[in-house]
Design a binder for these strands. Structure first.
Lengths: 230, 230
DNA sequence: ATCATTCTTTAACACTTTTTAACTCGCATT
DNA sequence: AATGCGAGTTAAAAAGTGTTAAAGAATGAT
């Protein structure tokens, strides 16, 4: 039996660094595909199966963060590592790193990258088998995150992506306050006024879906966020 | 079903001690996230679900006591252990330990920490299942903390967050004086003049809600605070 | 490509929550 | 009784939220 090589998607606009990384990783036994911007990387990601993605944040045409978000749209699980400039503020990186498995600040050593890479692959490959089904019980409802459905007895409500993302955040914070801005940055990527209003609209929708069970409620905490209590 | 690791939030500014504790706890099967100050710890707490918090009192930027209060704002139940310097007076510690499940004076052995940790987890994890409903009987009223409702016979009054928080504090101090500044710092985080006046407005509101039962009263203790008697 | 459908955002308006202001009353110390 | 400060109360201001409908985008089928 032949063990397939671990496939790496590498998005890096700096050609020197990109080729260097590719050479190094391939020498270490990986199969690396390099793309000069997020657009090209994404087009290839759609067509191929990758085990891990290494994305530079700063890239022309499509930046790494946007790319990561798009990758997440079609694959919730593939590990993503960000490459960030050291000059970036910690809180910015923190925002970026949401949904990422790790980030490395430039300049970094090849060894460091390899180390983290292996740590993540180890961690995710074992977790992969168990984390397949993710369901929440919300009162009498059953919320299937992956299938984006909300089930009550024999009635199945199909949720949209945004509805599902928001409900998932509420569930993971159940009986705690889900901070408005956190939710906005996580789901909408930007906590501006319009996105905030959009979120309010979705809260209304979720409340409508959940109104059949009085033991479940989405409370508002003025100026802070929302709380799913049950 | 997979048993998830118990997640520990560790806030400790002494890097040596912090890493040591983290290593030790992880070796014992916990998943520990270490933060160098209260600010960083809080930011992460908002985003993640922790099973227990271990907070050093003395920390730069944001001390452990302040952090604990903010944590309590969004999570009433998560166990909190304080790490305190031995030099602290007992009465100070007592004040600090309000809302905490335990405190350990430095220096302490790893074994001691582990012992207390497990004791608390045992205690709270079993309580968790029952303590889901937190209700107070206030005369003929029933106050549901989680759902922020005040019920009298078949009439249900929906309380706002601030109303609910204040009433809860009054209930936990029933027939005892609820200190003004304590309440302000707990709910408003700051005991300035305007917040104090705001609190007075809320006292008026609560009195109105509770006026149907003469056996219940919110008394003022001049210059000290308020007392819910019944 | 075009149309129909679904999802998401924007707009509009009503309503709530919280804070601030203003005025009044009461307690305590002189 | 006079003073000063704390507290009681009401109302308005300021900010935030609830809700519905329609516009705009994205998606999928013909």
């Amino acid at each position: 039996m032949t063990t397939a090589k671990t496939k790496i998607l590498l998005a890096e606009d700096d050609e020197n660094l990109g080729l260097l990384l590719k050479e190094y990783l391939n020498a270490k036994g990986f199969e690396t595909n390099l793309f000069a911007n997020g657009e090209l990387a994404f087009r290839d990601f759609v067509k191929n199966q990758y085990d891990i993605c290494i994305l530079d944040i700063m890239m022309p045409v499509k930046d790494g963060y946007t790319l990561a978000k798009e990758i997440r749209q079609i694959d919730e699980d593939v590990p993503i590592i960000f490459l960030t400039a050291k000059s970036m503020k910690e809180d910015v990186i923190e925002g970026f790193s949401i949904g990422a498995d790790d980030y490395i600040t430039k300049p970094f050593s090849m060894e460091e990258l390899l180390f983290r890479l292996e740590a993540i692959l180890k961690r995710t490959s074992s977790a992969h088998k168990t984390a397949a089904i993710e369901k929440f019980e919300i009162g009498k409802y059953v919320f299937d995150v992956k299938k984006q459905t909300l089930q009550l007895d024999d009635k199945v409500i199909r949720l949209t992506t945004k509805e599902s993302e928001l409900l998932k955040l509420l569930c993971t914070h159940q009986n705690k306050i889900l901070d408005r801005n956190f939710a906005l940055k996580t789901i909408w990527l930007d906590d501006n006024y319009f996105n905030a209003r959009s979120m309010d609209v979705y809260i209304t929708k979720l409340r409508k879906y959940l109104k059949e069970d009085d033991s479940v409620e989405i409370l508002n905490v003025h100026g802070k966020g929302f709380k799913l209590v049950m």
